[in-house]
Design a protein around this nucleic acid. Structure first.
Lengths: 211, 211
DNA sequence: TATTCGATCTAACATTTGTTAGATTATGGG
DNA sequence: CCCATAATCTAACAAATGTTAGATCGAATA
């Protein structure tokens, strides 16, 4: 059925340009104001068009926010994955973790609005959208699980450290820097170092006896 | 000026009861669904009345959410402060931190909806409301600053640990447990222990050289 | 019992929201 | 230059929201 216009040349990129402007505008506004505080008219205005026109590119507001969420996870995933892959095969557990921490923070503060928008609005979004984004989130969590397992397999982690809880603690504390750290000042390296120090070495001058 | 009915008996508690039901309902719904996803009709219904009646007790939805936010901070503040005060004067820095961590987590999972509602919706609330809650938040942060300073003054903390960054890391990672930990299972003690282990001792088997 | 006033309900309001249908403009190929 | 299709605009919709004013109910007081 209606297969008469099949597989010709690539479609003109005009629509893709507008689609990208809509997503960029949405990511920026979501990051700044949250989900329900941003209306479709706001997004359309920031993208240089009127509200009705947005529906030529997306079938709903929820479709827009889902795209923003997925792009955000993919961005931080790639950033961290590439950073880890670029390391030596015999890199220490400490080096792995520090590199991952820095990459995650760079993704939040230096690159796109998408990752920070994801962190900011994930909780505010309808249940169905959250579920539709869950698979991508799980993939990113798996990436970190692998990093931690690799560090553990090298014998660089203390015995008794709960990897799942550590992963959740790590990622959530990194994400929360969005609430107070001013990334424009370029101190991301120092921030990553400080967080690495605390998470890798703890804050005590002498270690407690282990259970 | 209209001082003819001054200082008689305590006012009938009926209004206070309804006011409390409204706040309880609001805190529960905010915690569960977020701020803008909860309408005044939802709150009124959960409190056993109709939307218009709420305005006999509060002048706006924003007044309700501000009250919820302030109560939430006050609750966790009291819980942590009382827990710390109950400790020995010569309690170790590790004991101080572990006690504070446990108290904060108990406030999130065992007691009221107010504290968890605060954590959940603070970001979603209009700027003016956030500012009106900022003073109480700063007080709680100051409490933690004092705990950390006391631990440091006892010589229990590693040199070079940035206290402000550690405080922010600590509190944000505790708050984030709301997103994944099922508090109904009573494992709060184990959760607090695991977080204490990681934050106090770090995850490395051997410590890196300090800068 | 009659009256007063605290508490709640009813009904409506203006505004904003996401969404849609149809008209209108821009663009590029014949 | 014409025309088909892509892209955007205009205008309106139904629903939901916070809020308000006035009627109504109930309980305590005198």
């Amino acid at each position: 059925m209606n297969a008469k216009v099949a597989a010709t040349r690539p479609p003109p990129p005009k629509a893709d340009v507008s689609r990208g402007r809509i997503l960029d505008a949405a990511a920026g506004l979501f990051r700044q104001r949250g989900y329900s505080a941003v209306s479709l008219r706001d997004i359309a205005g920031a993208a240089g068009m009127k509200a009705g026109s947005v529906y030529y590119h997306f079938e709903s507001k929820e479709a827009i926010v889902l795209a923003v969420l997925n792009i955000g996870i993919a961005a931080v995933h790639e950033e961290v994955a590439h950073t880890i892959e670029a390391l030596d095969a015999e890199a220490s557990g400490a080096a792995l973790l520090r590199a991952g921490i820095l990459a995650h923070l760079r993704s939040l503060f230096e690159f796109d609005d998408y990752t920070s928008a994801n962190v900011r609005i994930y909780q505010q979004v309808p249940e169905e959208i959250r579920q539709a984004n869950a698979a991508a989130r799980r993939q990113y969590e798996t990436l970190w699980s692998q990093i931690l397992q690799r560090a553990e397999a090298q014998g660089d982690l203390r015995a008794g450290v709960n990897l799942k809880k550590f992963r959740l603690l790590l990622i959530s504390s990194l994400n929360a820097t969005l609430d107070w750290f001013d990334g424009k000042k370029g101190g991301i390296g120092a921030l990553a170092d400080a967080y690495g120090d605390i998470l890798l070495n703890g804050v005590l001058v002498e270690r407690e006896a282990q259970a």
